[in-house]
Every structure is written in structure tokens, then in C-alpha cells.
């Protein structure tokens, strides 16, 4: 039977031949492209180009994420505002009445820290479950799959924007001025956070297909990260402890938590402790640093983010071919 495997005389119908003259053949053949993602197709640049080529799809998927997130809830998009407001309310009650601190305008500090920290947590959580959550599409159609975690991160920019709106409203209510001069630092911090989110989101989304433990682990890891990052507490607590115990040169080591540079920058610029009277400024002495200090820290975070992105994309491409089998 194997002798019939090769065609003896394949005769495509004459009508197709007349449609495509022989002169067109060479040009046409060169337009054959491999389908799917090849295992050797790991160039980070080519992956980014591919995502860019599919930007229409990225936009559609992002819209879809935003829409479907609140599709069956009565309050719908209002949750984007309600969620941070309620969080802020809880923490403010706890840290003003139960465990009173000396922090002035505590809700402002909380809102600025939570805005940027929340961008990372919600993005990474959504990114990690993006492939598994979209199995209906992943097992049916091919498209560059890395678009899914990227879209998950992008859709959380909407949540972030609503948190920033609340922060702005709170700044107006308190009539407290942010540090306009260093506002670009805050924007850079947002960019760094996005790189970190996409990096970890891509990496975890691929791993989650094979080990569903990733989602559970991530929940705990993010909780730990939250308490190891100065969102509700003051950066000076940790920094002064480290400096007293090990010496001032070890302060840099704190920055290995990539979220600390991002959150401190956001607090420095938007919460802006320089605007307080000198006696209140004292507790923020380690946060009132020159611009270069913040920029250096952010660059450390950015490096971590880029490494995560490169490793994430590598792992993603390696595992991508087996997604459909595993889902």
C-alpha cells in the first residue's frame, strides 16, 4: 500500500491551471509562509514585531477583557472605582483608628501606593490566567498567543486609570500639590511597572498551562509582596532598619524587590512629602532623595523587568506548541 503514497499522476483540474499562469509560480511560491510559531522562532524582536502587526487584535482583545470582566455584574464598570475606594476605606479605618500612626494625609499615601502596586498585581494575575482562560480560542484558531497576556495587562490600564482618577480627586480634596517637577519620574515608573507586568505575565501564563499551581502560588506571592513593599507602611522604616543593622551601602539591596523603586517613586512624586511642614517631613527623610536616586532605582527595576520579559518570551515560545494539547 505504501507504493501509492507518492502521487503517480496528480492532475489538478484544468480550470485551476488556467487561472494561474505558469509565470506567476515562482513569485507565488516565495509567498508560502510557515504557519504557527516555530520552535526556532524565538527572536524577541520578531515576537514584538508580530504583536505589533496584530495590534488590531490586541486592541480587540483588550476591549473584550475590559468588557467581559464586569459583564454579568449589576454595577458593571463602577467596580473599577468602587474597588479601590473600599480598599482605601478599610486600610484608612485600620491605620487611623485601630493602629494610629503619625502619617499625615494617610489616604493620599495609600492611594498613590496602591494605584501603582495594584497595576502590577491585577496585570500579573490576569496575565497568568490569560491562556488557560482563553482555551476556547487557543484550541481553535492560531494567532500569536503572546498577545493574550499582553492584552490582559493592557486591559488593566483601565483599572489603573480609574485609580489615578480617584487619587487626583483626593489630591484636590486635600488640596495637596504633587511634585510637578518630577512628574516624568512617575510616568517612567508606570512604564517600568508595565514592563514588569508583561514580563511576569507572559512567563506565568505559559507555566500556568502546565502547572495550574501557578495561580495559587501567585496569590500568596503577591500577598507577601504587598507587605514587603511600602504601600501601607513607610519606606523609612525598612530603610533605617537595614542601614542601622548592616550599614548604608546595603540600602541598595532593598531595591531588588522591583516594586519598591516603583512605589517609592510614585509616593515621592504624587504623595509628595516635601509639601508637608518640616516636623512632619522628618519621618520621610529617607524618601526625600534627589531625582537621580529614584532614576537609578527605577533602572534596576527596569532591568529586572527586561530580564523577566526575555526569559518569559523564551519560555513562552518553547511551551507554546503544546498549549493546545494541554488545554
Amino acid at each position: 500500500m505504501t507504493d501509492t503514497a507518492r502521487p503517480t499522476s496528480p492532475s489538478p483540474s484544468t480550470s485551476t491551471e488556467s487561472h494561474f499562469p505558469a509565470t506567476a509560480v515562482d513569485e507565488d511560491r516565495s509567498r508560502l509562509r510557515p504557519i504557527g510559531t516555530l520552535p526556532d522562532d524565538t527572536g524577541i524582536l520578531s515576537q514584538m514585531v508580530r504583536v505589533w502587526r496584530y495590534r488590531d487584535l490586541l486592541l480587540n482583545l483588550t476591549k473584550r477583557e475590559v468588557k467581559s470582566r464586569h459583564k454579568n455584574s449589576a454595577l458593571g464598570v463602577a467596580w473599577n472605582l468602587l474597588n479601590p475606594l473600599l480598599q482605601m476605606f478599610i486600610y484608612t479605618v485600620v491605620f487611623t483608628y485601630f493602629m494610629p500612626g503619625r502619617t499625615p494625609m494617610f489616604p493620599l499615601k495609600l492611594l498613590s501606593g496602591m494605584a501603582i502596586f495594584g497595576l502590577f498585581t491585577t496585570s500579573v494575575t490576569a496575565g497568568a490566567s490569560s491562556i488557560v482562560g482563553n482555551s476556547a480560542v487557543v484550541t481553535k484558531i492560531w494567532f500569536p498567543r503572546e498577545i493574550l497576556p499582553v492584552a490582559a495587562v493592557a486591559s488593566n490600564l483601565v483599572t489603573f486609570a480609574s485609580r489615578v482618577i480617584i487619587l487626583v480627586v483626593a489630591l484636590i480634596i486635600y488640596w495637596h500639590a504633587p511634585d510637578w517637577k518630577d512628574m516624568w519620574l512617575a510616568l517612567f515608573a508606570v512604564f517600568v511597572t508595565l514592563v514588569l507586568s508583561v514580563g511576569f505575565g507572559v512567563l506565568l501564563s505559559a507555566l500556568n498551562v502546565f502547572f495550574r499551581d501557578v495561580e495559587h502560588f501567585l496569590e500568596l506571592a503577591l500577598l507577601a509582596l504587598f507587605w514587603f513593599t511600602p504601600v501601607v507602611w513607610n519606606y523609612s522604616f525598612l530603610a533605617s532598619y537595614v542601614i542601622d543593622r548592616f550599614g548604608p551601602q546595603w540600602e541598595r539591596l532593598i531595591m531588588l524587590n522591583p516594586l519598591i523603586p516603583v512605589v517609592t517613586t510614585f509616593e515621592r512624586v504624587l504623595y509628595n512629602p516635601t509639601g508637608f511642614p518640616p516636623e512632619q517631613q522628618q519621618q520621610f527623610d529617607l524618601l526625600i532623595r534627589p531625582t537621580e536616586w529614584y532614576l537609578q532605582n527605577l533602572l534596576v527595576s527596569l532591568t529586572v523587568g527586561v530580564v523577566a520579559l526575555v526569559v518569559g518570551l523564551r519560555v513562552f515560545t518553547r511551551l507554546e506548541g503544546s498549549f493546545a494539547e494541554q488545554l
Binding site: D28, R31, L32, R33, P34, I35, G36, T37, L38, P39, V138, T139, K140, I141, W142, E320, G321, S322, A324, E325
Partner: peptide
């Protein structure tokens, strides 16, 4: 599924000219 690019082949490849849609 291999032709649609949904799964990656162990060996070999599929080349396609133009846009391909699959109705699985």
C-alpha cells in the same frame, strides 16, 4: 490542527500562502 497552526509538529512543517482560517 497542525495545518491550522494550533499544534506544533514534532517534525516537519506546514507552509501556507495567504490567510488561513480553520473551522474545527
Amino acid at each position: 490542527k497542525l495545518m491550522a497552526g494550533i499544534m506544533r509538529p514534532t517534525a516537519g512543517r506546514v507552509l501556507v500562502r495567504g490567510r488561513l482560517a480553520a473551522l474545527l
